[in-house]
């Protein structure tokens, strides 16, 4: 709560022309934003660019920000739009060199081959990374950023019902994959120990 009040004061000072106040806004908010975006785009370089563009855009349009609302979801909304644009650029680049299809297949095959060995938490994070982008986004906002469902709806500009159904679908997929991996793992263990496959 205190942190939010601080942030509001910093935003007010930024609007009064104090550039250093905006530097402090960046200090307070950029790490968690960066972690989220890096998880979503999958590499540090793109994530750094997106964060940079996000803070530039936020500064440019800060006067339009409704200060009765929380700042972080507003900032995250900008970052996610930037991420979308970045993903589109990357996809177009991949298309250009004609490797998009192979790229996608190679990753899926690699994933399915390894899943049985990945039951630890790192494996779960990788399963989340493999989710379709829409679901991955929902999971990261909910469980890494602790956004409420209402905040997620506002940030993503989608209906609350859609947020709920996406959370449900994402959890269901992760649960199924974890169960599938667990089953494969137990079969593998039985096979290695000389047990029968039934």
């Amino acid at each position: 709560m205190k942190r939010n009040t601080d942030l509001d004061g910093l935003i007010a000072r930024t609007l009064n022309g104090e550039t250093m106040a905006y530097a402090e806004v960046y200090e307070q908010t950029s790490d968690s934003l960066y972690q989220t975006i890096r998880f979503l785009v999958g590499n540090a370089e793109d994530a750094q660019d997106i964060v940079q563009e996000t803070y530039l855009e936020a500064h440019r349009y800060l006067h339009r920000f409704d200060r009765s609302r929380p700042f972080r979801p507003w900032l995250m909304g900008i970052a996610l739009r930037q991420t979308k644009a970045c993903r589109k650029r990357r996809w177009l680049q991949l298309r250009k060199i004609g490797k998009a299809a192979q790229y996608g297949r190679a990753q899926e095959e690699d994933f399915s081959g390894q899943i049985a060995d990945r039951l630890d938490y790192n494996g779960l994070a990788e399963q989340i990374e493999r989710l379709p982008y829409k679901l991955k986004q929902i999971i990261v906002l909910r469980y890494l950023n602790d956004y409420s469902q209402e905040e997620m709806a506002e940030t993503l500009n989608i209906p609350l019902g859609t947020v709920k159904s996406r959370i449900h679908t994402a959890l269901e997929r992760l649960r199924q994959e974890a169960d599938g991996a667990s089953a494969k793992s137990s079969v593998k263990r039985e096979f290695e120990m000389g047990g029968k496959r039934s």
């Binding site: 790490d31 960066y34 972690q35 964060v51 989340i128 990261v140 469980y143 890494l144 992760l174």
Partner: peptide
């Protein structure tokens, strides 16, 4: 849900600008 939360935090630990 707790596992997801924990695994994500673990994954992003140390990611700094």
């Amino acid at each position: 849900e707790n596992e997801i939360r924990y695994s994500l935090q673990k994954k992003v630990q140390g990611w700094e600008l």
